[in-house]
Design a protein around this nucleic acid. Structure first.
Length: 224
DNA sequence: GCATTAACAGCCG
DNA sequence: CGGCTGTTAATGC
């Protein structure tokens, strides 16, 4: 069973649990590693666990009618997702792919449901998270209609900097231009150009293998 | 036309 | 050295 210290480290939401709830959570958690490019779970499969990214980067991907790769979102360390699928006991609506070598934590469905039914703190966390997702998906719809690559990169980055969905994220994010391209649905040269534009607007600063966001508000509302 | 792919040199760790 | 970055030229939708 996982070390209690480790639980606190990888699951931000576990801090608010009562000792009894915490023990339940601890018993239901497992860690697993996935190499770059591997599929953590596929669309259409029942995957009965809530997933947290411990280390690395994961994307949610769906295939459009013509078989084109459409990324929905990037999830990095500290993010938990898939609560919709677990709650409804549904099949996955999308693939989950490791963009780079990644370690995830899995909370099995029974434990998830027990916490949901019995823990006020856990329920509060979930409501907050689901609420944040609503705004997130609204942004996604807009993103689909925006053709300007710079705006798409801005949204992709902004969605990864959300302090509710990613509690430990600061203003800095470790990500390559290649990965940004994958997440925004663009090639690397275009992602590179978009980043340069955002840098010129003083919205972010590009560093080697990462970005520092200077103006999150501007990044979230960028529209041209 | 604009974006993607391929390819290159240069740079960082 | 290996991976990431900035850029360009050729190619495709």
């Amino acid at each position: 069973m996982m070390d209690p210290e480790r639980v606190l480290e990888i699951a931000n939401w576990s801090h608010q649990l009562t000792p009894d709830e915490f023990e339940r959570a601890r018993a239901g958690l497992n860690e697993r590693a996935f190499p770059q490019g591997s599929t953590i779970c596929e669309e259409g499969h029942a995957f009965d666990a809530w997933i947290g990214v411990v280390d690395g980067l994961v994307k949610l991907r769906s295939l459009s009618a013509d078989g084109k790769d459409v990324s929905l979102s990037g999830i990095h360390a500290g993010g938990w997702f898939g609560e919709g699928t677990v709650l409804k006991g549904e099949k996955r609506q999308y693939d989950v792919v490791a963009v780079r070598d990644t370690t995830v934590a899995l909370l099995d469905r029974d434990t998830f449901m027990w916490l949901f039914e019995n823990s006020a703190a856990f329920s509060r966390f979930l409501v907050r998270q689901l609420n944040e997702r609503v705004g997130f998906f609204i942004g996604l719809v807009e993103n689909g209609r925006m053709l300007d690559p710079t705006a798409r990169v801005a949204r992709a980055l902004a969605s990864m900097m959300n302090p509710v969905l990613f509690p430990d994220v600061g203003h800095h994010l470790m990500i390559t231009q290649e990965e940004i391209g994958l997440l925004a649905g663009l090639s690397r040269p275009i992602a590179n150009q978009a980043l340069k534009k955002l840098e010129q607007s003083e919205i972010l600063r590009w560093e080697y293998g990462g970005v520092t966001v200077l103006d999150l508000e501007a990044l979230q509302t960028y529209d041209r």
